[in-house]
Design a protein around this nucleic acid. Structure first.
Lengths: 114, 114
DNA sequence: AAAACATATGTTTATTTGTTCATATATTAA
DNA sequence: TTAATATATGAACAAATAAACATATGTTTT
């Protein structure tokens, strides 16, 4: 690595930092994922789904939000593969897609509970 | 729990969902925390700090952002206790405050790598 | 003390985003 | 088929926010 008079860190450090840095696209995707968790309405929906699958209207009523708002946010969660949908007649039941959701939220809780 | 003709879910389910739901303030704090991770600039900064503590200018130069942008985002990270600062003369070295950062980002990576 | 350097702060601007309202689609019931 | 119910979609609006620019604060060097 070429010397850089503007950097204080050692060349070896700079090299390691740059080498370990994931590709821009991955960093962007990661930020996008966390953005999904960065809204209290969506967090509430996920918490509700911790207990059981629920249909859209139940989610809306349980959380005190409109059906439209629930639907919009469920779409965001679904696009990002945090929830999955199951159709039963005119009802659509949403549930968590996998246990990453638990783990990510769990880690977040640990941090704020300090 | 009183019966609710508008809800499809069973009373027992509704009861459990409502019981397990954390207080609104906690849900809000949790969303705020994830919001911090929900920006690629901040994610890049955190990744850089995985390797070693770094001063503001080095972070800016390494990531190709302005000093001002780095400072603003480091402030956000510091307020949310994800990084801590150490002063050495006119340099201020930032580093990760604890290993929750690793864990949270790690879980996020697992999810998107599927 | 003055100059140079490192970081922080305040303001403005452009973009993103969550919600609401109106409406469309789809399924079941009458 | 019409009405009722459940969910989704699209557009408009308001709030949040990241970046840029100018500048202030604090530290070291000369």
């Amino acid at each position: 690595m070429a010397e850089n008079e503007y950097l204080r860190a050692q060349d070896s450090t700079i090299k390691t930092v740059l080498e370990q840095m994931p590709a821009d696209e991955m960093l962007y995707d990661l930020a996008e994922l966390f953005k999904v968790f960065g809204d209290s309405t969506r967090i509430k929906i996920l918490y509700a789904l911790f207990e059981s699958e629920l249909c859209v209207n139940d989610i809306a009523l349980l959380l005190g939000i409109t059906q439209t708002a629930a639907s919009h946010q469920l779409r965001v969660l679904k696009v990002n593969k945090l929830v999955k949908a199951r159709k039963e007649g005119k009802l659509i039941f949403y549930s968590l897609s996998d246990d990453h959701v638990y783990k990510i939220i769990g880690q977040g809780m640990e941090h704020i509970e300090e």
